[in-house]
Simulated scan of single mutants.
Amino acid sequence: MRRIRAALTALAGTLLLAVTTLGLPSTAHAAELVEITDFGPNPGGTRMHVYVPDNTQPNPPVVVAMHGCGGDGPGFAQSSGFNGLADQHGFIVIYPTATQQTAFGTCFDVWSPQSKTRDGGSDPVSIASMVSYTHQQYGGDPARTFATGSSSGGMETNALLALYPDVFAAGAAFMGVPFSCFLDEADFPPWNSQCVNGQKDETPQTWGDAVRQAHPGYNGPRPPIQLWHGTDDTLVPFQLLREATEQWTDVHGLSQTPSFTDQPQPGWERENFADAGGTVWVESITVRGAGHTLPMSGMAAEAISFFGIAD
């Protein structure tokens, strides 16, 4: 039994849908990537594609998989490996496409005030709408809904878990940054960003407070998270893996010292942060020698395993 199952059991009883679905019935065909244009509130103007494999589990899990800056949902569907895993394990994949134009191309919004507040607007609300639509139209399981993404998508993964802890049961962020790292849109491009040029070094409590302030009054369980970063990443520096780890260990009330470490594959060094009962809530994975190129081979499968979808 995977370590994540204990965490999912704790979360399952409290998961709630975050938004009301307004979309029309889907015309999707099995084993095809289909665009949905009317899925509900969409303040971010975000596009939605969904992949439903030929054979799904009863009340199938739902994975939201998000691309990096300049990419799109269909491209991430082709390159990330999640469609093949969906075919194998019977889960549904939502592929959002960002349309927020920045000096670094189209990216998911993680800088505006709206993107940092529960139901504040922008991309997080749009993606929550996609999730609600998928639950209702395809019978997706609200207790097994997950977020993952690369670069900009990894940043949005952190945001979604902060803003919607009652919607997402777990997340896996590749090459992301801590939630609320960016001050505003001017701080987003790497060449002039305090967030990604190595100047952001906050205390764990400061990072944790940012998550707690995103959804004031929420006292329920927080989703587990898996964090990935390459040591040779020159675009989103490796140092931010430590900052994100500090954020989520503080949110979960865990020690900054790993409970144990292991090596899932050669070159992958994983720090596991567990509670007193042994449940791992945060995994921090260092990928030796990797640049801004994640996920690489085998990493999507490791994320699915962390989610508890694959035995």
Score class of each variant (00 low, 15 high):
G253I: 13
V62S: 00
G70H: 08
I127D: 05
E156M: 15
G289N: 15
D109T: 14
L11K: 01
F306C: 09
T56E: 12
H292S: 05
S284N: 07
D141F: 01
P25L: 08
Q239H: 06
W248R: 09
T102I: 13
F82I: 08
P178Q: 04
G230F: 10
L163V: 06
T157A: 02
M155K: 12
C69Y: 04
Q88C: 03
N59F: 06
Y138P: 05
N42C: 04
F146A: 05
Y95I: 10
G149M: 08
G81M: 09
G217C: 08
Q78H: 07
A173K: 02
F39L: 14
Q199N: 11
G308K: 13
G139R: 05
V93G: 01
R144C: 00
C107K: 03
F82G: 01
V211N: 09
S150A: 12
F260S: 15
L240E: 08
P223E: 07
T231W: 08
V64Y: 02
T261R: 14
G81W: 04
G267E: 15
V280M: 10
G217D: 09
I225K: 04
R222Y: 13
G105Q: 14
Q136F: 02
G121P: 13
N42P: 14
P189I: 04
A310K: 12
V50K: 02
T14M: 01
D166W: 00
G44I: 14
V110Y: 03
A147N: 02
P189Y: 01
G291Y: 06
M299H: 10
N272V: 13
